[in-house]
Amino acid sequence: MGVATSFILAGSVRFTRYIMESYVSSQRVIFRRNPYYWRKDAQGNSQPYIERIVWQIIESTENQLISFRSGQLDNLEVPPEGFSLLKREEKRAKFEIYNGGPDTSTGFIAFNLSKAKNSQGNPFVDPIKSRWFNKKEFRQAIAYAIDRETMKTNVYRGLGELQNSFVYVKSPYFLPPEKGLKVYNCEPDKSKKLLLQAGFKYNAQNQLLDADGNRVRFTILTNSERKVRGDMASQIKRDLGNIGIQVDLQILSFNSYLEKLKVTHNWDCYLGGFAGGGIEPHSASKIWRIAGASHAFNLGPQPGDPPMTGWEVSDWEKEIDKLYIKGAQVLDENKRKEIYYEYQRIASEQLPFIHLVEGLNLQAVRDRFQGIQYTALGGPFWNLYELKVTD
């Protein structure tokens, strides 16, 4: 007890048991045990036992891996590219890799469906591209063109599962495909057929054009800190090239990436994810409610932002919004299940988010922790108050 420890936690630990001692921007946050915390063990000793926690801020997954291997960190969310290396070092370096199965996070691409204009009267999205993006058939065709099985094998090294819904697959609210969840496996011919039916056409060079003869070309935006995202974007570029679409990549630092998504709104398509959806679907309400701050695919006016004009909301967005309101008001579990089933039916048909692959929840933890009871939902530190550290 009283040993300083370091973590990469990504929000997985509730620090109500700890008081912030110091903060160095972009480097670390240090927490000290709250002496007034209420919990005690069976012998009357105050909990938690660990006196001090150092939360290192390391943005790049590659640098996180280096820091863990060098002994600077006690915990690591294991990236796919680092698993085989760490597995070989597990016994010698005295740590254990816990596998919680499919993560509760989501991974996807989303098109910018906004038809709004900024305060200068300029559209956030090129009107030509906006017409493509707002066609359901276009989004479905993109989904059918992406080879997610190859992505799982090559990008995730087999350490992932195909994802088809925002609701966690082990949640009782998850809509199974046999009950109406639409699944988009890789079918390039079906993709091309949908595009032709939607008014697109191919030229002699097998390049996709819209009805007015415009070459179909757009940019995928993602952030540089997670290597896996750049790899996924590169594969999507190749996959869509196979159906005649030219994709450009824009890989930015996380802050610049967020600025485009949240402030300037000038993006075509982004590759991203939301962390920790969990069992309860309503945890995603800020994503699906029309006025939600994370309604990324068609973000409306937000408090403090410059004014926008011409923002439109589709009928299916309004219907999902109503379902989320209803889901929060109904107490009967069977009725709630049907409400969230219906939302998933609509979402999988309209595809504002095209789901990709979600990695397994792999966490490496040093052996010097006593009392780890790993769970898929809580991770290694859900019972932080009763953990002890030994040297």
Rank of each mutant, 00 (worst) to 15 (best):
E317R: 07
N185A: 06
T222I: 03
I279L: 14
N34V: 10
G359N: 07
L196N: 02
L362R: 02
P306N: 07
S256V: 01
D74F: 07
R289L: 15
I30Q: 02
L252F: 05
Q246H: 08
V78I: 13
A296D: 07
A291D: 15
V13C: 01
F68E: 05
P172C: 06
S26M: 14
L73Y: 08
L159Q: 11
K201R: 14
I320D: 06
S25N: 13
F83R: 08
N266H: 11
S25W: 06
W316D: 11
T104C: 14
N185C: 02
K326Q: 15
Q43Y: 05
F369E: 05
I251C: 11
P127Q: 12
G244K: 01
R289I: 02
K190H: 13
I346F: 04
P102L: 04
R157Q: 14
R17P: 07
N206M: 12
G310E: 04
Q43N: 14
V24K: 15
I354D: 05
V313Y: 01
D367S: 10
G101T: 00
W288T: 01
A116I: 03
D231A: 13
A145Y: 00
P35K: 06
A364I: 09
Y173M: 02
I290Q: 10
I346C: 06
I287G: 00
N298E: 04
D367E: 15
A198W: 00
